[in-house]
Amino acid sequence: MARAAGLDPLEMLREVGIDPDCLNDPDLKVPSEAIGQLLENSAERSGWQDFGVRLAESRAFLVLGPLAFLVREQGNVRTSLQLLSRYMHLHNESLQLWLEEEGQQARLCFDHVGRSSPTRQSLGLSITVVYRFLKQALPEGWEPERVCFMNEAPRDLRNIRRVFSGRASYKEAINGIVFKRKDLERPLSTSSQLGRYAHDYVQALSAGAPQTTTAQVRHLILAALGNGHCSLDAIATQLGMDERTVRRHLDREATSFNALMREVRHELAVRYLVGPPRSRNELAMLLGFGAPQSFTRWFRGEFGVPVAGWASDGDA
């Protein structure tokens, strides 16, 4: 991709601190922050604002390794996407996925947590890889309702329209794929009855690289904020613990549920405010506040300025 865009791939790697020797070892992990910056630099210098989407076209779903086998071996879309969300940390520790169901609609949401560099290209890459998997695994002709991106549309949309069959939508409230809820029950054509073996294998890998309670709670807060069900009690239930046990684990890791909630809200608030314009009502809902007034009070206390003041300062 870099060469096709007139770039020197090895020099681009060195520039962000990645040893080019990593290209010879597909199992070697490299910093996601550096990869994200590499993609952003490549998009900027090539002039291809859809660089991440283009790159995804050359990447088979099996690039996810053992996780890909587990996901494609499930009996239906719901189980497949739930396991993809649960075990994504084995492939990319900064990328978080979660499945939302509301009314007749389902949404697979994507986000990068703890990243200071821009994420437009890496999110475009990840969303396109999963979109292409669903297209392969579901009956011919299946399409989601929308493929959503929070950023503005690229200047040249020809490639985007081709890849997503005209379903891409920009300046959206989420990064992700929106489809009919009933699609979650559809069987996968990729299943070959190896699901149990794949599940056991990925579980063994996950056990060898355990996530901290802090990481798990952050992930669940992120997934639950916009649904209005983000409480310590609800998250403890999902972790199979009681509230006291979760508090004790977080205390050992020098944090707390309230501190993590504040961190996640802070990160998301900044991301939403630098994206497409949103009303106070929408921001309050996305950040898990019951009323716009509660969001307004929290924002002033967190950033020291009202929402309008933050936007005029251009910094948080």
Rank of each mutant, 00 (worst) to 15 (best):
D242G: 15
C230S: 11
Y201L: 12
R3W: 06
E15G: 02
R45I: 00
G103M: 03
E33H: 05
S256A: 11
L10Q: 05
H199P: 00
A234N: 04
I18K: 02
E11D: 07
R278D: 04
L38Q: 04
E282L: 15
K182A: 14
G226V: 01
P187S: 15
G288C: 03
P20D: 10
R271N: 06
L10A: 09
T119A: 11
Q293V: 13
A236K: 03
E57S: 09
M88L: 11
A234P: 00
R181Q: 14
V217F: 06
A234F: 03
K29E: 13
V16S: 02
A204I: 02
P118H: 03
L23F: 02
E267R: 05
Q121H: 06
D8N: 15
V147H: 01
E267F: 02
R252F: 07
L239I: 03
P277K: 06
Y131T: 01
I235D: 00
M88P: 03
Q105Y: 10
S122T: 14
L225P: 03
T190F: 04
A153E: 15
L62Y: 08
R186Y: 08
D313Y: 15
H91Q: 06
Q121W: 06
E93K: 14
F69Q: 11
E152M: 07
L97Q: 02
R158K: 15
L225K: 00
G17S: 09
A224G: 13
N24D: 11
L81C: 04
V264P: 08
H91S: 09
P20E: 10
H266P: 00
I174S: 07
V202M: 09
P66H: 04
R297W: 08
D50A: 15
P144R: 11
S94W: 00
D50P: 02
S191Q: 14
R248Q: 14
V129G: 04
A173V: 10
M12H: 05
P26L: 05
A60V: 00
Q74N: 10
D19R: 04
G166I: 04
S58H: 12
T190R: 07
T213K: 11
E44G: 06
E172M: 14
R78P: 02
R218F: 01
A60H: 02
D25W: 01
D313W: 15
F289H: 12
A223I: 01
S165C: 14
D242F: 14
L157S: 07
A284W: 08
L55S: 10
Q211I: 03
D50W: 12
T79D: 14
L287T: 06
S117N: 11
L84N: 01
L55H: 07
L239T: 01
S85N: 08
T237V: 12
E73I: 00
L138Q: 07
V307F: 01
A153F: 14
V63S: 08
P118C: 05
N92Y: 01
